[in-house]
């Protein structure tokens, strides 16, 4: 089963929740860091890396011995990434999505593709758990191809915990789309509530089963509780606003290892998610 952990707002505790769920998981479990712009899971899990490979996107290359400068490739490109001049073809890689439309459109078969590296995927183990991480190269704009590569790497077997990037746009969609359950982590503040509403709109648009976990409970106000009650969204866990959790996090230590009394909270959360997924499967 694949559980994605997301939030509209950044810094609400997605990684904290994902890591702690991993640590209380009873069976085979994999942590997949899909926050490829800023992956942090590694700092807590200190994995033994078994291997890594480059993640690439295809970039068209024109063979000028065959090109007749007819301009079909430019017409085919919906991203406006190609200009055909009398003696050259310019391809703007920052606009190219690597879709292959230009390759198909070329009547002279003059366009081939080379693989352009944009990031890497590392995999290994942390204790009994599997670990996979995507990392986007600095200066690259499009993270979804790296995220999709991480998703392909982990597959669907066992328990897969996906640590999603913040926000609600394309990178998040790539991370949470087609997961079995999406846990939205928020904090009980006006910013947390506002961004939770966006995240809820996103998971609803994707048709994903979802629920909320509140981090730093006790801080702020009751806005998130009132909203979830009104919208019929379950709050599956409330992680207390405890300075010791923040300090453990600061130094890259896992809350359940540092503060064993938190274990039942995460065990209960993981069971609750499992039950929600099973109930849907049965229905």
């Amino acid at each position: 089963m694949i559980v994605s952990i997301a939030s509209g707002k950044g810094g609400t505790g997605k990684t904290t929740v994902a890591i702690n769920l991993l640590r209380v998981a009873p069976g085979e479990a994999v942590y997949a860091d899909c926050d490829v712009e800023e992956p942090n899971g590694r700092l807590f899990l200190r994995p033994e890396i078994a291997g890594e490979y480059t993640c690439t996107v295809p970039l068209p290359v024109v063979d000028y011995t065959k090109c007749t400068f007819c301009g079909r490739c430019r017409e085919a490109c919906r991203f406006n990434a190609i200009a055909v001049l009398p003696k050259s073809v310019m391809i703007f890689q920052e606009l190219c999505h690597g879709c292959g439309a230009c390759v198909m459109a070329c009547p002279e078969r003059a366009i081939s593709e080379r693989e352009r590296p944009i990031g890497k995927v590392s995999h290994g183990t942390s204790g009994n758990a599997g670990f996979v991480e995507g990392l986007l190269n600095v200066g690259e704009a499009m993270s979804p191809p790296v995220i999709r590569q991480v998703r392909r790497h982990v597959g669907r077997d066992g328990l897969v915990l996906i640590d999603a990037p913040p926000g609600t746009s394309c990178p998040v969609i790539a991370a949470v789309n087609n997961t079995d359950f999406c846990l939205l982590v928020t904090e009980p503040t006006p910013f947390g509530l506002h961004d939770l509403k966006l995240a809820v709109a996103m998971v609803r648009a994707l048709g994903l089963p979802h629920a909320v976990a509140i981090n730093r409970a006790g801080l702020g106000d009751r806005g998130v509780h009132d909203y979830c009650a009104a919208e019929g969204i379950e709050i599956l866990a409330e992680i207390p606003n405890d300075r010791r959790i923040a300090e453990a996090y600061a130094h890259g230590r896992t809350a359940v290892e540092e503060l064993p009394e938190l274990r039942p909270l995460f065990e209960k959360l993981l069971r609750a998610i499992g039950e929600r997924i099973a109930a849907r499967g049965a229905a």
Binding site: G10, D35, E37, E38, A141, M142, S143, P165, P171
Partner: peptide
Amino acid sequence: PGIGCPVI
């Protein structure tokens, strides 16, 4: 947040 397209 991040380092991707909106940040750039």
